[in-house]
Design a protein around this nucleic acid. Structure first.
Length: 581
RNA sequence: GCGCCCGUAGCUCAGCAGGAUAGAGCAUCGGAUUCCUAAUCCGGGGGUCACAGGUUCGAAUCCUGUCGGGCGCGCCA
């Protein structure tokens, strides 16, 4: 595993050393808190390559004014060979300009590291379990699942790229009542396949056509063996077969989006293994589960409400509104009761847990966080646990909302959408919005106005680069780093932006926000397109120059490395970097 | 009633764990194509960052409250 050292980290160390030197000289009092000191690219490139707020942050505790402190620091920094100028600006920022050689070195680093450029050691090999999708196995994937699937998958890749060991996990809810409904629905299709007139699908069962092949397969295999049989004889079998068929379908749908999980954990197996009971015993022993009465639901009146004694988890101790039942009155596990045990199982194989959930499950975040905290801390191994909520996607077609109802069988499937607009568009679009904000997804727009789609913009930049490399090769000119010092300010600006990539990766990984990579790639593509177009106004600025093979080689080298960074970024997002459009 | 998320240009959205003059795309107006792919680029106009307080050298960003929108609030999953 390799890591890409960022320039910013290198300079943070230099500034730290300079501060220590000032302390040693008695200019600064010892022991100043340096946590707030940052080294960043200034928002306005005219200010320089790097800026630090050290003087602003430290002036007060040092009992001096920012400018005086800044002057002391600048005195230490100007001697550095990598620094060409250090200026004090505004209230006390220090702006640094770096030698061209530093940036050219970064460009060579891209070439040397290739697909590994931007990788980070940030994660230090920590095992992170990312659970995402986990759609109920009662039907094909629909668009409601799409955003969480893409965000979760991109986050997993991002964390991997940032040095974590990632487990991609899917929780199969194959134990609840909805699976019985599924089995009954399949039974109906089974009867239908044997020639029984079934008429309208009764309300409460899944009406979708997608269950027909499952019923037909069962009819082929078992004939009319179960047609007149009581439900106990076939339900277990039908459950199993139906779930298996649905999971096969779901995996196929996910594969179309380029998503593959490492682990599919079954709720039914978890229960058979007695995990929820183990968790309950432990929680009872620690007075975190007790038998008590549930309050009546808030917000709407429930007519048949009766208080019943149930085993409750003390989630109120952890900030939840009320204690939550882990078992139903018939003794079976609630979703939460099993989920709590499931999270403990995940925690055994990971150092950190992340769940990606739809916003409609926001109300259950507190209880599961409470449960993980109680169990992992109680057992002496606290596990960081984060639930990322992905907000709803409003599906539109030409501005009109698309109505979806799983019960009525009128939902838009993921497969349809991928078929219609393509995997790359779906993935990139889902990542051009921060996940905690709602988004609209308009088919008409995404398909028809494909040239307004950011994914094409980024891919076009990559394709242009490759077309240029091909053209150069046809003329016998290969990229070369021999004369990089001939690159000018316009080229270096591009290098500087490309050199942000490792920093963007780390920032995005820390914040768990893969969408930042998408926006960064858009910016990088824009910079490249702008650079390219300079050649339209001034032929001397083109990459391919008929009369200067040396400079052409250097520019091709530059272009090739920009392409490499775009590829690496798109790789994280799971979007293809095409070489031709 | 309570909890979570959101509120930034006419529209769709960024804003890098508090930084310098708040940025893109679309739309609109005006330009660039003897060209390495114009699916591109350059420029103009357009903002009380919902509102009101607070924290500090400094707030779109953090805290409190109000308003507006979304999601949720059963032993469902």
């Amino acid at each position: 595993m390799t890591g890409t050292p960022t320039l910013y980290a290198a300079f943070a160390a230099k500034i730290d050393a300079a501060l220590s030197a000032l302390e040693a000289e008695g200019v600064l009092p010892p022991g100043l808190p340096r946590a707030g000191v940052s080294v960043e690219p200034p928002r306005d490139p005219a200010h320089g390559d790097l800026a630090t707020n050290a003087a602003l942050v430290l002036a007060k505790p040092a009992g001096t004014n920012p400018r005086a402190l800044a002057e002391g620091l600048v005195g230490k920094l100007v001697d550095d060979a990598m620094v060409t100028s250090a200026e004090i600006a505004g209230p006390g920022f220090i702006n640094l300009r770096l030698a061209d050689a530093v940036w050219l070195g970064e460009l060579r680093a891209v070439a040397a590291l290739g697909a590994d450029y931007g990788r980070s050691l940030l994660g230090a090999g920590r095992r992170v379990n990312v659970e995402y999708v986990s759609a109920n196995p009662t039907g094909p994937m629909h668009m409601g699942h799409c955003r969480g699937a893409v965000v979760g998958d991109a986050l997993a890749s991002l964390l991997e790229f940032a040095g974590h060991q990632v487990i991609r996990e899917y929780y199969v809810n194959d134990a609840g009542g909805q699976v019985d409904v599924l089995a009954d629905s399949v039974y109906l299709r089974y009867s239908e396949a044997l020639g029984v007139e079934i008429g309208e699908i009764p309300p409460g069962l899944y009406p979708g056509e997608y269950l027909k092949p499952v019923g037909e397969a069962l009819a082929r295999e078992f004939g009319d063996k179960y047609l007149e049989a009581p439900a106990d004889e076939w339900r277990g079998l039908f459950r199993k077969r139906a779930v298996a068929a649905m999971m096969e379908q779901i995996k196929a749908d996910l594969a179309q989006l380029g998503i593959h999980h490492d682990v599919f954990a079954s709720e039914a197996e978890l229960q058979r293994a007695g995990k929820p009971a183990e968790a309950e015993a432990w929680l009872r022993a620690h007075d975190l589960v007790y038998d008590g009465h549930l309050e009546a639901p808030k917000g709407k009146t429930v007519e048949d409400w009766e208080p019943v004694e149930l085993p409750l988890f003390r989630s109120t101790k952890f900030g939840d509104d009320q204690d939550r039942p882990i078992r139903k009155s018939d003794g079976s596990w609630t979703y939460f009761g099993a989920d709590l045990a499931y999270h403990m199982q995940k925690a055994e194989g990971a150092d950190e847990l992340i769940d990606i959930w739809g916003a409609d499950h926001a109300g259950t975040v507190k209880r599961i966080k409470a449960a993980v905290a109680a169990l992992s801390e109680g057992k002496g191994r606290p596990i960081p646990f984060d639930v990322k909520l992905v907000q709803m996607v409003q599906l539109l077609r030409g501005g009109e909302p698309v109505k979806m109802s799983k019960r009525a069988g009128t939902f838009v499937t993921l497969a349809e959408v991928v078929e219609e607009v393509g995997k790359d568009v779906v993935r990139f679009t889902m990542l051009t919005r921060k996940p905690e904000a709602q988004m609209d997804f308009d088919f008409a727009k995404v398909v028809e106005a494909s040239k307004d789609n950011p994914v094409f913009y980024v891919q076009y930049a990559h394709a242009r680069i490759h077309s240029t490399l091909r053209k150069g090769a046809a003329e016998g000119i290969e990229p070369s780093d021999r004369a990089l010092e001939r690159l000018g300010a316009d080229e270096l600006a591009l290098v500087k932006l490309a050199a942000q990539f490792p920093r963007e990766v780390e920032a995005a990984a820390k914040a768990r926000e893969p969408h930042r990579i998408a926006f960064y790639l858009y910016d990088l593509a824009a910079a490249f397109h702008a650079f390219w177009n300079m050649g339209n106004d001034d032929p001397g600025k083109r990459i391919l120059l008929a009369d200067d093979r040396e400079l052409t080689g250097a520019r091709l080298f530059l272009a090739g490395q920009i392409g490499q960074v775009i590829r690496n970024g798109l790789g994280i997002l799971g979007v293809q970097a095409v070489e031709e459009l």
